[in-house]
């Protein structure tokens, strides 16, 4: 059996989730605190991947990143980035595609904290960064965990975006969901079943982890 597509899938999910975590914390913080007029627009954009067919997203990425267009040409020429049919392109697309799954839990965690906690830290002379790292984030651990796991699982499950922008280059962009599709097309049901069952079990375990940990089961077992 070829484990390549599965390994690639989890590499992609890991890189995507790490980048998402770093982007989503400041973005969620801004969404919670901002009274800016463009806030609803940003919120809408963040949520768009929830409702838009992934192929729409993939189609526009394909157009935008294509070296024959100005933006793609710029990336290729000046930054040496080829985002069409490459792992890098998949990462960028996955980050945007899974953004709401990371931002929403963090945003609701932060807005659920009493504002007096951050105010108390400020009055005690602590900077915004110190307050974020030592007061806000430690108190929304379960939201962070939910965000990490949902973003990871969602990236594992993506298909349309990858199909549009990644193609199916083994070791580069041929992730498990694409491999399943191709094996089915080739009537190779045993291989399709192998990829499917591994994905099924792993995503089941991941989601089970979210619900047990947020329900406090793990915490109770730990003690």
């Amino acid at each position: 059996m070829d484990w390549g597509p599965l390994i690639l899938t989890f590499q992609l999910a890991l890189v995507t989730t790490t980048i998402l975590l770093l982007i989503s914390i400041p973005l969620a913080l801004w969404l919670v605190n901002s009274r800016s007029k463009i806030k609803p627009v940003i919120e809408t954009l963040v949520s768009m991947p929830l409702v838009l067919p992934p192929t729409v997203l993939g189609f526009y990425f394909l157009i935008a990143f294509s070296p024959s267009n100005a933006f793609g040409h710029f990336l290729d020429q000046y930054l040496g980035l080829k985002l069409v049919f490459s792992f890098g392109g998949l990462v960028v697309a996955s980050v945007i595609y899974s953004l709401p799954f990371m931002v929403h839990p963090i945003q609701s965690g932060l807005s659920g904290l009493s504002p007096s906690l951050t105010e108390a830290a400020y009055v005690l002379g602590k900077s915004r960064l110190q307050t974020l790292l030592r007061v806000q984030l430690p108190n929304i651990k379960s939201s962070l965990l939910t965000g990490v796991i949902l973003a990871f699982a969602h990236t594992v499950g993506e298909f349309g975006v990858v199909l549009m922008i990644g193609g199916s280059i083994p070791g580069q962009t041929k992730v498990a969901s694409i491999a399943i599709y191709e094996e089915v097309e080739a009537m190779n049901y045993a291989a399709a079943n192998f990829y499917s069952i591994v994905l099924f079990i792993i995503t089941f375990l991941i989601l089970l982890l979210v619900y047990t940990s947020n329900g406090g089961y793990i915490k109770r077992l730990w003690k």
């Binding site: 009493s114 007096s116 906690l117 105010e119 108390a120 009055v123 007061v135 108190n139």
Partner: peptide, 13 residues
């Protein structure tokens, strides 16, 4: 300055 909040604002963790 020192401030004591109405809801105490103790850090729960």
């Amino acid at each position: 300055l020192g401030m004591v909040f109405q809801d105490y604002a103790l850090f729960p963790h």
